[in-house]
Computed example of a mutant assay.
Amino acid sequence: MQISERTHHIALVEDDGALRTLLTRHLRQSGFPVRGYATAAEFKASAERFDLVVLDVMLPATSGLDLCRWLRQRSNVPVIFISARSSHTDRIVGLELGADDYLVKPVDPGELVARIRSVLRRSEDAGGADGGDYASVVRFDGWRMDRRRRELFAPEGSRVSISEAEFDLLNVFLDMPQRVIGRDTLLEHSRNRLTARDSGDRSVDVLVSRLRRKLGSIDGGRDLIRTVRGVGYVFTANVEA
């Protein structure tokens, strides 16, 4: 599926002025309206709404990690981290905070554009943008998920904050309930490929752990995702469209 014709607005939070100028110019040449910010405070003060945020990890004063936490409390907007930190642990931290991708500096502008397009494409695919008989509202174990609006509601009715990557992962489980799903399948269908090229990749396990915590955080909640050692996972609840 291609990205829809509507314009996608990008925020770039990067304190390195030269890099911010370079990436801003390349994004605009690639068709993305982009607004650059040097600090987290500048971004927070903005009243604009964005379809995706590119976020440097090592910002002055308030770090990119803290800004991502702040975003996740308020929005499900996709986040792509860019950072000089390249260790596997740093990437996992990004996952834990709800990032949707992680790109190591020096950043290749063409690769960043490709990552942005991939994240936006997966977001629209999961939202059922192509219409058809794709069930919009799905219920399981008292929970309700609206796939088109990309919203998740707990059994008592409260809206639960969920990242784009977590949403896509849950979508895969809801499409294949009570079946063993391998990690490769989950990685392929989820939008998060943070460490897919690394041997010993743990990105899917971290995403599953995050999703488990959220589904079990409500009073009386239970573990709906069972681990099948050496194979993958099973979503145990009955699913009703």
Rank of each mutant, 00 (worst) to 15 (best):
M1F: 10
R6P: 09
T7K: 12
T7R: 10
T7G: 01
I10K: 05
E14N: 08
E14H: 07
D15E: 11
D15V: 01
G17S: 13
L19W: 09
L23A: 07
T24Q: 13
R25M: 13
H26F: 14
L27Q: 07
R28A: 09
Q29G: 11
S30M: 06
F32N: 04
P33N: 12
R35Q: 14
E42D: 15
E42P: 15
E42M: 13
A47G: 15
E48D: 15
R49N: 12
D51E: 10
L52S: 00
V54Q: 07
L55A: 04
L55N: 00
L59R: 02
A61H: 15
A61I: 11
S63H: 02
D66G: 03
D66S: 07
R69Y: 09
W70V: 03
L71G: 02
L71C: 01
R72E: 05
R74K: 14
N76Q: 11
V77H: 05
V77D: 00
V77G: 00
V79K: 02
I80A: 01
I80N: 03
F81Y: 04
F81L: 05
I82S: 03
R85K: 10
R85L: 10
S87V: 06
H88P: 02
T89G: 14
T89R: 14
I92H: 07
I92T: 05
I92R: 08
I92S: 03
G94L: 02
E96Q: 15
L97N: 05
A99M: 01
A99G: 15
D101A: 01
D101K: 00
V104N: 03
K105V: 08
V107I: 15
V107G: 03
V113P: 04
R115A: 02
L120P: 02
L120V: 04
R122T: 06
D125M: 08
A126L: 07
A126W: 01
A126G: 02
A126S: 02
A129P: 00
D130P: 03
G131W: 00
G131N: 10
D133C: 10
Y134H: 13
A135W: 03
V137M: 08
F140W: 08
W143N: 05
D146Y: 08
D146V: 03
R147G: 01
R148S: 06
L152H: 02
F153P: 04
A154V: 09
P155V: 06
E156G: 03
E156W: 14
E156N: 12
G157I: 05
E164V: 06
E166H: 05
F167I: 12
F167N: 09
L169S: 03
V172C: 09
V172K: 11
F173A: 04
L174H: 13
V180E: 14
G182D: 14
N192Y: 11
L194N: 08
L194S: 11
D198E: 13
D198S: 12
D198R: 15
S199L: 14
D201R: 12
R202T: 15
D205R: 10
V206N: 02
L207F: 06
R210S: 06
R212N: 08
K214E: 08
G216E: 15
I218G: 00
I218M: 10
D219H: 15
G220V: 01
R222S: 13
R222I: 14
D223C: 13
R226T: 14
R229P: 11
G230P: 14
V234L: 10
V234D: 11
V234N: 09
F235N: 04
